[in-house]
Design a protein around this nucleic acid. Structure first.
Ligand code: FES
Ligand code: FES
Lengths: 133, 133
DNA sequence: AAAATACCTACTGTTTTAGTTGGTATTTAA
DNA sequence: TTAAATACCAACTAAAACAGTAGGTATTTT
């Protein structure tokens, strides 16, 4: 199990934005330089974040991205849900812990997996960008 | 992010063993039938579990696998650590939360990621097989 | 002797990941 | 008004990881 680089880079970039919240825009070029992340890849990542309405953007020479909400209002769960393509931790269970099995077997084990999924979700929902700066 | 089928199947199989703890062996053939999991794949999974000394085995017609420890002494973290090939959730950080960056950049963001890693680890260490039956 | 089990090693098709490539559109500053 | 800096968009691709399969051998019970 590993978080994708999308998520990892996204988290790191959003921390930059948190630090500048209420002040400057942050350009992807500057993040790319500071964090050694491909600019083009950052663009893709921020495309997702913008679609999900977590960040807003301005074009032009003084442009860049900024957070739409306060850092303390953005949970780590929320970010991961946007950037990680597949948050179904286990087969037979959807993101919200509902059984969805191909075999319709409804074996008891799914209850276990649901508990693990929920425990991790709750942990991530309890952490915000603010907590982490 | 998704747990591999190795881990998912392994967890489901270990629940079977927990139910029979102190009683019968459980054969992989029976798990394969009940849970619709490839027998050959289960063999690989149990090879890892045995090497890690989580289960023991007996050959022959009445053979099969059984837990070495009580279900309440086996944490979900422990199982996942054995079966999941890569438990480094993020780049630049090892399993135990130590910074290990290719760029030697030691950027502040790693502290964030360490916190996420630790929170998830602690959650999984707090759950045992017993809790889940 | 037959059946059931564990055990071992190598291989393989598919999917996912982690980007790259090559552009266009908008805004600011010289 | 031109150049530079930014965001924005779509398609492609090499490499890695995943999820098994294949083909056996060894041991124990019935
Ligand atoms: S195989 Fe999906 S719930 Fe049992
Ligand atoms: S790039 Fe690895 S710690 Fe910053």
């Amino acid at each position: 199990m590993k978080f994708s680089t999308r998520t990892t880079y996204g988290l790191r970039a959003l921390i930059k934005l948190s630090e500048k919240f209420g002040k400057n825009n942050v350009s992807l070029a500057s993040i790319s330089r500071d964090e050694h992340i491909s600019l083009k890849y950052l663009e893709q990542i921020f495309s997702s974040l913008k679609k999900a309405n977590l960040v807003k953007s301005e074009k032009g020479a003084t442009g860049g991205y900024s957070l739409v909400k306060k850092p303390e209002e953005i949970t780590i769960f929320e970010i991961i849900e946007i950037l990680e393509k597949d948050m179904n931790l286990f087969r037979c269970i959807d993101q919200h812990g509902k059984v969805n099995c191909n075999f319709k077997c409804n074996c008891g084990a799914t209850k276990v997996l649901i508990n693990v999924q929920r425990a991790i979700n709750d942990t991530l929902k309890g952490m915000s960008l603010k907590d982490l700066i």
